[in-house]
Design a protein around this nucleic acid. Structure first.
Lengths: 158, 158
DNA sequence: ATTTAAAATGCAAATTTATACATTTATTCC
DNA sequence: GGAATAAATGTATAAATTTGCATTTTAAAT
């Protein structure tokens, strides 16, 4: 099923970015985006993604991603940790990030600590970072993730 | 009604110490301990405590406390020069190994010296190793090799 | 102590989520 | 390719969880 991975990524993205409090609610959003599926499949998807349902003061309940809290991540990012990042390129299914000399490893460290599903791993030299995406993650998935997290980044090719 | 707080604390303790996968299950434990209550009250207690229900490989689902931190699992690999190895992932036909900070190059050195046919080469950053297999070596070949040499290693992708 | 308001609980019903089973779709192996 | 195998999905239903409402208990105030 070639759509499944894309769907899983989209579910992850949605849960990461908005407050969703039931499977029906999420299902409606997905249907508006053109995904055709039933609640049963969504239940299995959420299980596969290890998405938890947690009580929430505003909405009663929210779905949350298994990794660290996004609030913390974003706070870390907007503050610092990405200074020196210059550009982003894609090649061979991977992302190549250019930085100021000496900045690669600290930025790679920050990227690792996003704990983003999309990122399988990174390796940093002095001014270059090789970012290896997880299998099934498309170039645009990765681009979206990075653009979301790194506003203002110059993108060289797409 | 005599001691709601005590009950709430006991619920927290139970969820923190054992794997509980449904309210009915938890209710039975509580009843055995002398608490008299219905599942509806338990549902409200869990909501009050912000206990989340998360998919789990063993039991299907587990309840988790809101502040429970993910413990980085330390593999006991000291006998093999592989201390600090955390996880193994596959992507783009290569293996990505995560290590504790600063441990990548020493582990990569150990891997090189396995002199395994399957391994064409390795590149180590600070806490990540990229392992490039020889042409014709499949992902499962590599997984078998590594599992053989590195018992107890957590595998992320599956 | 009596009244009054707030909090906690049970019951039953509604809602939400998970799953057994059958079927379709993809993958693997000759 | 085509058979065999595995994976993904839908349907229908079961299981689990939440909640509205009525009632009881606790706490607060006088």
């Amino acid at each position: 099923m070639k759509n499944r991975n894309e769907r899983l990524m989209e579910i992850r993205r949605l849960i990461g970015n908005r407050n969703i409090s039931s499977q029906e609610e999420l299902l409606k959003i997905l249907e508006k985006q053109g995904y055709e599926m039933t609640q049963a499949t969504l239940s299995r998807d959420l299980k596969y993604l290890k998405v938890a349902k947690m009580p929430d003061n505003q909405t009663g309940y929210v779905y949350i991603l298994p990794d660290k809290e996004k609030v913390v991540e974003e706070a870390e990012l907007s503050g610092q940790g990405l200074t020196g990042l210059i550009s982003l390129d894609f090649s061979q299914g991977m992302a190549i990030l250019k930085t100021l000399p000496g900045h690669a490893s600290s930025i790679a460290y920050t990227l690792d600590n996003l704990d983003a599903y999309e990122i399988a791993g990174t390796i940093a030299g002095d001014d270059t970072i090789l970012l290896i995406p997880r299998d099934g993650v498309s170039q645009s998935d990765l681009a979206n993730l990075l653009k979301l997290r790194i506003p203002g980044l110059a993108k060289n090719s797409e």
